[in-house]
Amino acid sequence: MEGFWFVLTSVFLISGAFLIFTGAVGVLRFPDFYTRMHASSLTDTMGSGLILTGCLLLADHEWLVMAKLVMIFLFLLLTGPTANHALVKAALHSGLKPKLGAEPS
């Protein structure tokens, strides 16, 4: 691949990989369920979006592969936040209290 396209795909892929790694570290180290949910759901959608656009550039001009990648990305874009929203709603309904600041309990 020409220099410019190679740099562009590697920028997309490496930034997507970095986002996904920070998301995983965030899920591991955050104190409370709701902050972990925040870390995982944001980086899930954005990280996979960046990686899939990187793959989009890799599949140079094969329209079927690019269409499939766009479909996967749109699907993840729609279902990721929905699943995480349902997860938080279920956690909230079952009485999982968020760990708030130093409240005078």
Binding site: F6, T9, S10, L13, I14, G16, A17, F18, I20, F21, G23, A24, V25, V27, L28, F33, R36, S40, I51, G54, L58, L87, A90, A91, S94, L96
Partner: peptide, 27 residues
């Protein structure tokens, strides 16, 4: 470049598994 991304995805899957084992609550 793809393999670097694959390594990052594998590492994050490992961290997610650690959270799955350690996670206090079901959610």
């Amino acid at each position: 470049m793809i393999s670097a991304t694959i390594v990052a995805v594998l590492v994050s899957m490992l961290l997610a598994l650690v959270r799955a084992f350690m996670g206090p609550s079901f959610y």
